[in-house]
Design a protein around this nucleic acid. Structure first.
Length: 220
DNA sequence: CTCCCGATAT
DNA sequence: ATATCAGGAG
């Protein structure tokens, strides 16, 4: 596992590669962010944004979702995968926000997790992006990058990855580091065809060195 | 662990 | 053709 110092160096280097790493899910308020992140499970941000562009015109408040039939909402988000679960979750979550939170999205992570379709990762995104609460949401990119670089162990659960990152990164850097890891994973250290050949972190990357020995790294 | 699931990259 | 995508629930 990389030391605190080495992780700090990695995050700074990644920050130079992606100086504008921030949330790419389009939204204009916390409620829209909750809906967008709930839709984003196992689906690209680009596709979510394509769908929410029309969705947020049609549905502006939790009441709008609560007053729609599940079938109609399913059709409105059909092009996103897992649409039946997501439609049901968004309708229920809207009802809960109306009935239990006075129509206002809670900022507390434990309250957010009570909402259907909102797990720890989604709650961390909402708390962090919408309310400025320090958090590290461990999604597929953060998990993969952390394991490849050696920020944590390969066998670690997503919760263990999150705990390790919180321990090794200063609180004031949690949110920005989280977004840097997302961008690095999404555009550079991709699941398929990672760009190890043009990676400034290759020399200290455990997975990169392994790929180098296997002859999988194309020089740039 | 399995299921949910369409769009896109490889 | 197959893998992957800002996962969560049962």
């Amino acid at each position: 596992m990389l030391s605190k110092k080495e992780i700090e160096f990695c995050l700074q280097t990644i920050g130079e590669m992606f100086p504008h790493a921030e949330c790419e899910l389009k939204h204009t308020n916390p409620f829209e962010l909750v809906v967008a992140v709930a839709l984003s499970a196992q689906c690209t941000d680009a596709l979510v944004n394509r769908v929410t562009e029309g969705l947020f015109q049609k549905y502006r408040t939790p009441e709008d979702y609560a007053n729609t039939s599940t079938e109609e909402l399913e059709q409105d988000i059909r092009s996103i995968g897992l649409y039946r679960n997501k439609a049901k979750n968004i309708k229920k979550l809207s009802e809960m926000i109306i009935n239990e939170y006075g129509g206002v999205v809670p900022s507390d992570r434990d309250e957010l997790v009570r909402l259907p379709g909102v797990g720890r990762k989604t709650a961390n995104v909402v708390a962090s992006v919408a309310f400025g609460v320090p958090a590290i949401a461990v999604d597929t990119h953060v998990e993969r990058v952390s394991k490849r670089l050696g920020f944590c162990r390969w066998k670690d659960s997503v919760l263990e990855v999150e705990k390790t990152l919180m321990k090794k990164i200063p609180v004031e850097d949690w949110s920005v580091s989280h977004h840097r890891l997302i961008f690095f994973g999404r555009y550079h250290c991709k699941a398929q065809a990672p760009k190890c050949g043009e990676c400034p972190l290759l020399s200290l990357c455990r997975e990169g060195q392994k790929r180098l020995k296997k002859g999988l790294v194309k020089a740039i």
